[in-house]
Structure formats: structure tokens, C-alpha cells
Design a protein around this nucleic acid. Structure first.
Lengths: 231, 231
DNA sequence: CGTCCGGTTGACAAACTTCAATGATCGTGG
DNA sequence: CCACGATCATTGAAGTTTGTCAACCGGACG
């Protein structure tokens, strides 16, 4: 990974003691309150991060895919501020973390990458904010699917057909809707010929319609009317 | 406020060419796409950041209060990723920004503070996520008011009585509800003796009830029943 | 003094949740 | 290999919350 290649270049003396770790589905990478010992870069698989609510229910905060850095929000407090569990068999590359200054002084490239990733994280969180505040479940779902589709395209995979790395319940939780509502939304999109979704396999049939759906803020009733007109 | 506030403003090194700037209500501190020239620390007043949707409507992303750092999400792209306007007469302290490395090498203390603030920003965004995904408008409003109250307490002001730094429309937008719904929620809380809200003055009469409301996930009908029982 | 703007309220429609039941898939042990 | 239970997903009907549209109110301000 680019990150590691960079780190060895600038300062030869201390080689970073990097290692890999594999997690099985359902296994925790870290939990709230654990001391922040190492930065993790996701190599394969998928991870969800979440927090517990006062009432015991959980709230999914993010899905992480290969290339993402884990746990940067732990820097300030020195301990993890969210839970992370593998959604599937997952491997991560771990870099020991001995404090900002230690890392900053010895590995400027890593420091730079960390700052870049944190800044990107803030941008992404703003995008999540935009996603969560879309008016209808259909819009949020459309935006979510496009997001995923873009990720696959950007990583050299098909943007039209891919696997959903997480179960419906997690998607629904993330989008702040009930699984039933998600299911209905998927069914609607399917009936309207926008997508094909069965189990974890997703096929995007009409990306433009999805984009318009995620972008525009027309009431969904108007949407259904539009879609019917086209047929 | 956990959601709004970053505590402890950094003291910029003396060598840095720091200056102050005052903005009038409605004036823009920066806009999406502008080059990232300086880091700003809010000294007084209040700021909202927001993004434009495809349909032209705007989405409020955050309210910033004194002590908050502005525009850290601009580091990665080198340009601002959101709009920021003053909600009131506002003064900010500006530190020129010449790139991560420049600042990092010359002012380690500032670099450390920047990383801390970015990390805190990520934590805060997670809290915003939790806020936005609360089930009902009443819960979100309760959590929001408590956040604001906590900010004032943490800054040496009364946690019971304070000014709302933003108009209703902005609060509603931030909480992802319509102004009408916000108004009704406020009225309900007022009728139930939890708060007193007129114009921009807010009085918290029953903080514990607010806390329970924000924490628990009981359906609001159950809530009204509980409140009535107490009377 | 009238107008504008921010805020409130009412009535109705839309979207979402809840409760309940059914169906499909998969891993596992008999 | 099949049966079984468990998990995951879908569907229907009824109830709740929120949005929408419209009217109204009151203070701020020219």
C-alpha cells in the first residue's frame, strides 16, 4: 500500500513494526474505551463501526472498505470512540501508534497521510450528514447504492453489478429506516426497473434514474408518476 | 456543546502572522471551492456551515461557537468543502496556512492541536450522526438543547438560561425537521413544563426530563403519558 | 403606520413505523 | 443427505409521526 511504501523512504533508522491481522465475521477489531494502540488500514473484507444508544440499541456509523483507515477519531482521547466489527472475513494492516509526536517526527509521510485521511473523514462525514437528511427513504437508499457503486468503480470493479457487503438490517440502521421500509424501497426500485436486488447481489439497471432520484427533491409520489409516464 | 464545541482554543505561536477579522450577520467567512488560505479560530459570535443540495435547498451541517476551529476539512483538497456564514456579528482569529508540512515543521504545537481538533471533529460528527438518527423530532430537539446547554455550562455561563444563537429555521434544518414541526415540539415541551422558549431566549426548567427524553427511546405517545402521570 | 419576516397553529395528506405472519436460505447436526 | 432451526428478507394492515398547505400573529423596521 502506498502508505507503507512512503513510510520506509524518508527516515531509514527505525523500521515500523507493521503486522497483519485477520478477523472473522462478527469479530471485533476494537471497542469503545479500548486504548488506542495501533492504526489499522483495511486490506480486504468489510467493517462496520457503531455506537450503543442509551436504550441498548445500536447505531451504525460507517461501513469501511479496503483502503480505509480505522480509528483516527481515537487520537484526541487516546482511546477508541466507537466499536468496529468485521462484516465478513477481514484482514487489516496494523501500525503501532505511540502518540502523535512520535509518529509525526519519525514518519512525516505517515503523518501527512493521517492528516489527509482525517480531513477526508470530515468531508465524508459531511456527506453522510447530507445523506441522512435526505427527505425520503428512497432517496437515501438511492444515494447509498450510488455511493457503493462509485466505490467499486473507483477500485476497478463493475459499477453495475456488485455485492452488498452488509446485511439489510445494517443498511437500514445506517440509513435510519426500519428494515421493512428498506425492503419495500428495494422492491419499489426493482418493480420500476431501476435495480435488481436479491440477497447480497446488486445489479444497477438504470444509474441515471438512481442519480436523479438521489439528487432531486421531488416528493416520491411525483416520482412514481414520472416513472410510470416513461413506461 | 459536544456537537458544536471544541474546547480550549490553541494559542498560536507568536511568530505566526496572525490577524483578526470581524464579520457581520449573514456575511460569508468562506464558500465551497475557495482556496484554503488560513485556519480560523472563532473568538466570538456564531457561525453556521452548510452545503447546497442539487435542488438548490441548503443543508445546515454545523453550528460553530467561540473556540471552534473552522475549515479543517479543507486540508485534504486544499479548498473549502462547505460554506460558512456568520449568524451574528462574529470575530475570528486567522492563521495563514501554507500547507501541512510547512505548519507541521515550524509549529509542532499547532500541528498537534490541529490533529487533536480533527480527531475531535470526527468524534463530534459521530455524535451528530447519533443525533440525526434519533427516532422522533422531540428527541432530537431535546438532545440539541442539552448540547447547547452543556456548551454554555462548560464555558462558564448558565446552563439553565441562555440565548439560541440561530433562528428556528436553521435549528429545524439542522435537526432535519420542518420549522412547523420544531415549533410544535417546542410548544409541547413548554406545555409540559420542560422549557420556556420565547424568541431566542431559552429557559430549561426540567433538565432531567430533557435528558431522559433525549436518552430513552420510548415512543412519544408513551412519553406524553408519562408526563401526564406526573402531573 | 403599514409591511415584512420569523414564528405559531390548524387540518389534511404522505411517509414511515409497528405488529404480525410468511417465505427463503444456509449452516449444522442427526 | 436431509431435516431442522436460525437468520435474513419480504409482505400486509393498521397506527403514529411528520410534512404540506394555508392562515394568522406580533414584533422589527423603514
Amino acid at each position: 500500500m502506498a502508505l507503507l511504501a512512503q513510510t520506509s523512504a524518508p527516515r531509514p533508522p527505525a523500521q515500523l513494526n507493521v503486522w497483519h491481522q485477520v478477523y472473522k465475521r462478527g469479530e471485533a477489531l476494537f471497542r469503545v474505551g479500548e486504548p488506542f494502540r495501533s492504526i489499522g488500514i483495511l486490506r480486504s473484507g468489510a467493517v462496520k463501526t457503531y455506537l450503543q444508544r442509551d436504550d441498548g440499541s445500536e447505531q451504525v456509523l460507517a461501513f469501511l472498505l479496503p483502503g480505509d483507515i480505522l480509528g483516527l477519531d481515537a487520537i484526541a482521547a487516546g482511546q477508541h470512540m466507537r466499536n468496529a466489527v468485521a462484516l465478513d472475513t477481514t484482514s487489516a494492516c496494523l501500525v503501532p501508534y505511540d502518540g502523535v509526536d512520535e509518529i509525526s517526527n519519525r514518519f512525516p509521510a505517515l503523518r501527512r497521510e493521517m492528516m489527509r485521511q482525517m480531513s477526508l473523514g470530515l468531508v465524508r462525514d459531511a456527506q453522510v450528514h447530507m445523506l441522512l437528511t435526505m427527505r425520503t427513504a428512497d432517496q437515501r437508499l438511492a444515494a447509498f447504492l450510488l455511493d457503493l457503486s462509485n466505490w467499486y468503480r473507483n477500485h476497478g470493479f463493475s459499477a453495475r453489478e456488485f455485492q452488498l457487503p452488509m446485511p439489510r438490517a445494517d443498511i437500514a440502521n445506517y440509513l435510519n429506516i426500519k428494515p421493512e421500509t428498506l425492503s419495500r424501497a428495494l422492491t419499489r426500485m426493482q418493480n420500476d426497473g431501476l435495480i435488481r436486488a436479491e440477497r447480497r447481489r446488486l445489479l444497477i439497471l438504470d444509474p441515471d434514474a438512481l442519480r436523479t432520484m438521489a439528487g432531486e427533491s421531488l416528493p416520491p409520489e411525483a416520482w412514481r408518476a414520472v416513472r410510470k409516464q416513461v413506461q
